[in-house]
């Protein structure tokens, strides 16, 4: 801000001012140049490359062959591709809402002043220190049929064992359960959002005779909606690129019979894409899958952002000091 006030003074000697501005712009671009180069080389060109490659057939050894829309047409009848969409969508539909709701409930519980609340916060955050692969390396034994902790607990209370990762009806749900274990980050962001709600609003609501449900419904949730929105967007982008766990723990299995085809009950979209690219070396085909996933994520993100006008409440007057 001090800068904008100082500018008119400098402007008086116009030639010198422009020189100074030019120097500043030059410094700016020198400092930012790593990002610009990186963006061009590692983001923009590969992005354009993906789109172009998706119209080719390419095994990496020979020159890419232009095939037009052939890849996209083939995808429409590729059982594994359709299964990838089904699995990924069902996972998203199960995992996203449960994750958002459970973490919100836990954040609300931990937003009270009860003894040891900081210890609880640290404990619930701990699993967030792991990610994809490490979670899988730990849970693969939690889910083990014979010696896993879950089946041992079930046996102790006299319930039948469950084939967590081997029963096609359970495998995907097991992934959802495992995902719930790692919601510490989301909880932490909710807690920060809850801290930002002015206490007077609750006091005013109480004076008006609002019970805890009314306070939650009419104060907490609207005031927290930007935080919910943030968590939803970050969750969306991640959930459709789910890979590590399915690669390490099930590699797409256990198989199920669908019509006359055998498909994997946890064959996530990214797993299919990875196999097409780096196992079968059909890079053009994989690129077309990447493009479709990209467009899908883009559309759904834009849809959520658009819809946010209806359900996200921004305090109209909050203009952050910039």
């Amino acid at each position: 801000m001090a800068r904008t006030e100082a500018l008119p003074l400098v402007r008086r000697t116009r030639a010198r001012a422009t020189k100074r501005e030019r120097r500043e712009a030059l410094t700016f671009y020198l400092l930012v140049s790593p990002f610009i180069v990186g963006f061009l080389v590692f983001t923009f060109v590969p992005m354009a490359g993906s789109i172009l490659l998706s119209f080719t057939s390419w095994d990496f050894i020979h020159k890419p062959i232009w095939v037009g829309l052939q890849n996209y047409q083939n995808l429409m009848s590729d059982q594994d591709f359709i299964q990838g969409i089904k699995v990924t969508l069902s996972y998203a539909v199960m995992a996203l809402p449960t994750g958002l709701i459970v973490s919100l409930v836990l954040a609300l519980l931990m937003n009270r002043d009860i003894p040891g609340v900081n210890v609880f916060r640290a404990i619930y955050y701990m699993p967030s220190l792991l990610a994809g692969f490490s979670v899988a390396a730990l849970w693969i034994f939690v889910f083990d049929n014979q010696h896993g902790i879950l089946n041992n607990l079930l046996a102790t209370i006299g319930l039948p064992r469950v084939g967590w990762l081997t029963d096609p009806n359970w495998a995907l749900k097991s992934f959802v359960l495992m995902g719930l274990w790692g919601i510490g980050n989301t909880i932490l962001i909710y807690l920060a959002g809850l801290k930002g709600i002015p206490q007077q609003l609750y006091e005013a609501a109480s004076i008006d005779g609002a019970g805890w449900w009314a306070r939650l419904r009419h104060v907490t949730l609207p005031m927290l909606s930007p935080t919910i929105f943030f968590n939803l967007i970050t969750g969306l982008i991640g959930v459709f690129q789910y890979f590590d766990q399915s690669y390490v723990m099930t590699n797409g299995g256990p198989p199920i019979i669908q019509g006359d085809q055998i498909v994997g009950s946890t064959r996530f979209y990214m797993l299919k894409l990875y196999n097409d690219a780096f196992r079968s070396r059909e890079f053009g085909y994989a690129a077309s899958e990447a493009v479709l996933l990209f467009i899908f994520i883009l559309l759904i993100t834009l849809f959520v952002i658009r819809s946010s006008a209806l359900w996200v409440y921004y305090e109209g007057n909050v203009v952050k000091g910039k």
Partner: peptide
Amino acid sequence: TMMLPGVITLVPSYFIFV
């Protein structure tokens, strides 16, 4: 770029590094 799904750059990036 913060919102960009990494999948879209996967295959060509591999080619660049090859």
